[in-house]
Design a protein around this nucleic acid. Structure first.
Lengths: 192, 192
DNA sequence: CGCGACGTTGATTTGCCTCAACGATTGTGG
DNA sequence: CCACAATCGTTGAGGCAAATCAACGTCGCG
């Protein structure tokens, strides 16, 4: 079982110390999952009950806009956590779906057990505080980039930051993540 | 001194338990500040060293774009924390300035002392985990709203959510926060 | 009083979307 | 193993939301 998530424990240990007994406790609270391409973890309209750590692969979060076109708001690659934190915290219906973009291995943490887990392994409170802070920093930066750059610049930024991402993900998902139409992205690719 | 931040301690106690001795320890680590209108807490190009809790008043975070026009990326009202978390975490130069929009009372927590503080009052790790999660949820929602709504809709959303905010803040700050020009905001106000 | 900061108005321009049609590729059932 | 349908990306014409630019009105403040 432990070899289902070699990176998970290692990642936590980069931020806090975990003894072997604590690792064993932790392993009782989490569930490793293997996901096929396009498999769903959360469906829009459900309450989001887990926080997901991407061990390998790629997840995305998206919703359907008023024209029923998928809008991808986030991707999560290796070592990132993803969830609808609004739904998770408020226990309200999620406005998003979460889906595996490619074959992925993830670790799911049940939010309703999280406090109990923190009671048994208090360092995890710290680990998650750091993870939330990291995600918040990324989200703040994201907002800035959206405001600061034109759609064309958003595209070139993205290509420079993640040059090989176009091989992993359909173009229309990237387009909606960048806030532009597939047609316009296509036009930009031809030029740039 | 303690009456400089009546809301601060009360806010923490909504999320975690604090004994009186713990409150006294906490008070040694934080600094209450009274800010005049337009007073700066952080200047672009400095390292951001504090996390700020808004006791009363209103702060904003902004940067200058390529045309040297101020772009407000965040406001913080009562009971919200504000900081450039990217700069804070990485100890890199901040791309933002943080400024009081109106006369404000804030509580500043020095980030370099935060770990020591958490060592003495461990519940605060939990409190900040919850605050970061709350801020992340808000930031995720913000990204969604930006994608989902037209500029006109962004405006009406904002007016409905914060009807009295126009009295507190110059219009051009709201315009840049909503991602539109002062001219266009003016046009929208006339109509709607 | 006079200057600077802020908001407004209107004319013009443009970045990007919409819509529709057409290739290319992939997967699937007969 | 081929036929056929989805799915996905591309192209081009036309249109619109919102930006840009410039000029002017107004208020508060030194």
């Amino acid at each position: 079982m432990a070899n289902n998530y070699p990176g998970f424990i290692a990642h936590i240990r980069k931020y806090v110390e975990l003894s072997e007994p604590e690792v064993e406790i932790l392993e009782k609270y989490v569930r490793p999952m293997e996901l096929k391409r396009r498999e769903y973890l959360v469906n829009e309209g459900e309450i989001c009950r887990h926080n997901y750590f991407v061990e390998k692969g790629c997840l995305r979060m998206f919703y359907y806009n008023d024209k029923m076109v998928e809008q991808t708001t986030q991707f999560a690659l290796e070592t990132w956590w993803i969830s609808d934190y609004f739904s998770l915290v408020q226990q309200s219906l999620s406005q998003y779906s979460i889906q595996a973009v490619e074959r992925s291995f993830v670790v799911a943490v049940d939010y309703s057990l999280q406090d109990k887990l923190f009671g048994e392994v208090p360092q995890l409170e710290r680990y998650f505080r750091i993870m939330m802070q990291r995600a918040l920093a990324a989200s703040q930066l994201r907002v800035k980039l959206i405001y600061q750059y034109s759609k064309k610049e958003m595209y070139t930024q993205f290509v420079n930051a993640y040059p090989r991402f176009f091989q992993r993900v359909p173009q229309y998902m990237i387009a909606s993540y960048l806030g532009l139409t597939p047609e316009y992205l296509s036009e930009l690719r031809k030029k740039g």
